[in-house]
């Protein structure tokens, strides 16, 4: 941060330049015949198609299905995951009993469990939401445990010594200490959740962005396929950067 605004602006314009250069190289490679336009459509076709998709009712409907699944899974799993994590982090007894359990499950590859979710919930909306929650819950629990353990006992002692009320302790010590760690967990959980829902849609489904992408791939509609990938990438990068911005904001006091 010490480099100042000028170098920050320079860095961002350099990054934009790199992204533009990649697209230019891609275009030139196709136009000069280095790459086959049939398997790698040029950005001059893909980018307009991606923009046009945002006005296409079929794409918008499927995008809405995916967003609804992701959001519902997130809204359901966030309080559950954080509550479990805080319980395990604050209570010595439950922590000792179940922390290893969650640390182990967090390291287990969760994508392979998708067929089990199909056997249990079918191939509809519920299954996608349940699978999204399953993908996200472990990282949420782990980060909430870390958040509970990140509250500095020195800060607590000092605040108590100066006669802080219970309310003040929660609002001024616990919350600012825990929030950045929890928001980081929410961000990672959201990425896993999006990945899980898209994967579930690509695997077996009747609707959703993942379903569209998978269908386009199988029917060799390469321009649609690349445009769909760009949309999915842009949306998840936007979600990730927004949560990262919030994470940095609430964590700014840590320096």
């Amino acid at each position: 941060m010490s480099h100042g605004l000028a170098s920050r602006a320079g860095r961002i314009s350099a990054q934009i330049g790199i992204v533009v250069a990649i697209f230019l190289f891609w275009e030139v490679a196709v136009q000069t015949g280095m790459a086959n336009a049939r398997v790698l459509p040029p950005p001059s076709l893909v980018l307009p198609r991606a923009v046009a998709m945002l006005g296409d009712p079929v794409v918008l409907y499927n995008l809405w299905i995916t967003s609804a699944q992701v959001l519902l899974a997130f809204v359901l799993v966030a309080p559950i995951g954080i509550a479990i994590g805080l319980l395990l982090g604050e209570s010595d007894y439950f922590g000792r009993a179940f922390k290893p359990f969650f640390f182990f499950l967090a390291s287990v590859p969760k994508s392979v469990f998708l067929p089990v979710f199909i056997l249990a919930f079918g191939i509809g909306f519920t299954q996608k939401v349940a699978f999204g929650m399953f993908q996200a819950i472990f990282v949420l629990v782990i980060s909430a445990i870390a958040a509970a353990e990140s509250v500095s006992s020195d800060f607590l002692k000092t605040a108590r010594a100066y006669g802080a009320s219970r309310r003040q302790l929660y609002l001024d010590i616990y919350l600012p200490a825990m929030l950045p760690v929890i928001v980081e967990g929410l961000r990672l959980g959201m990425i896993f959740n999006i990945t899980g829902v898209l994967f579930a849609e690509m695997y077996v489904s009747r609707a959703g962005l993942g379903h569209l992408v998978s269908t386009w791939g199988m029917s060799f509609q390469m321009v649609n396929l690349f445009a769909g990938i760009l949309l999915a990438a842009a949306l998840s990068i936007a979600v990730n950067e927004a949560l990262r911005w919030y994470e940095n904001k609430v964590g700014a006091w840590r320096g």
Partner: peptide
């Protein structure tokens, strides 16, 4: 490091499963 690395960490957030149809097509 200052230019490409942040782009790489942004790409890391992209759910790569959606790219798989490209691989099977190719």
């Amino acid at each position: 490091r200052t230019t490409l690395l942040p782009i790489m960490s942004s790409i890391y957030a992209v759910p790569l499963v959606v790219v798989y149809p490209v691989f099977t097509a190719w």
